[in-house]
Simulated scan of single mutants.
Amino acid sequence: MADPTPVIDDLRAESDELDRTVAELEAERWSLPTPAPGWTVAHQIAHLAWTDRAALLAVTDADAFAHEVEKALAAPDRFVDEGAEEGAGKPPAEILAGWRAGRKALADALRAAPDGARFPWYGPPMSAASMASARLMETWAHGQDIADAIGAVRTPTDRLRHVARIGVRARDYAYGVRGLAPPAEEFRVELIAPSGELWAYGPEGAPQRVTGPALDFCLLVTRRAHRADLAVHATGPDADRWLDLAQAFAGPPGAGREPKGGTP
């Protein structure tokens, strides 16, 4: 089994970076709307805190987490929004303190998990490394929503490799969540990391290919930017179709972002 320590360390770094961003905001700016309809900056951080608590429950008390899954199944269209709404009305300092405490408790639990342990989740069970990767992906994606809301420009890091890997591995899920059959053959994905390193996935000679900057690919698969605004390119009709569907997160794809130029 993969050692989860590096990704847990990267999750901490990603969370700390976002923490510094929101901690510097005046209290009134926590009510700024973000690109997620109906969600303010406060909703974004409250949602991260809520999901960290759910993940901690999955790692430490599978029976109690099963009850949370039942709640989600009973209200699949509302439970995510309700989780964010639950904490968003608190003062910013209280939201931030809760997120800090919850993410530390989750990191400690993941570090202490036995080798090979797998934990229940809203989708397939996850290892400690997979759980940390998923939390990093969501932290980065919601951090982008906040950056867009406050007009900040983030400097990408090679922590994006975790987001990119999930996006590649979730290819078939993106088809399945839309009721479509995925292509039978693997794709080749080649991404240029922020450091300049090449990240490659899939058979080298595959005719269906995707290339581009890792940052743009991660914005695409988290649906934080429209494909028309990104330098991600496809070779082959199946790869081209995938770029219209790709998503790295579980659940419905949502409306996504409109292109900056206004083209449908």
Rank of each mutant, 00 (worst) to 15 (best):
V153C: 06
A147L: 06
A170S: 00
R118D: 10
F187A: 15
M126L: 08
G151D: 06
A129R: 07
A141F: 08
R111W: 15
T139D: 02
I192G: 02
A164I: 08
V153M: 14
D148M: 13
M137I: 05
A128N: 06
L198C: 00
R178W: 15
L136K: 05
R188D: 13
R188F: 09
A174V: 13
P124I: 07
R154Y: 04
V177W: 09
V177H: 01
R135Y: 03
L180F: 04
G143W: 03
R171V: 07
A109P: 15
V153Y: 06
E204N: 08
G116S: 02
P203R: 10
I146K: 04
A112C: 07
Y173S: 11
P125Y: 01
W199F: 05
P114Q: 15
M131W: 10
G196P: 00
M137T: 12
P125I: 12
H142W: 05
W140E: 13
P182S: 15
A112I: 11
T139P: 01
L191S: 01
A184Q: 14
E190D: 13
A112K: 11
L198S: 02
L136H: 07
P114N: 07
L160V: 09
F119Y: 10
A164L: 02
E197C: 06
L160R: 01
S195W: 05
R118K: 11
Y201T: 04
R171W: 04
V177F: 08
A109Q: 11
L191A: 02
E186A: 13
Y173N: 08
R161M: 12
G143P: 03
G176W: 11
L191K: 00
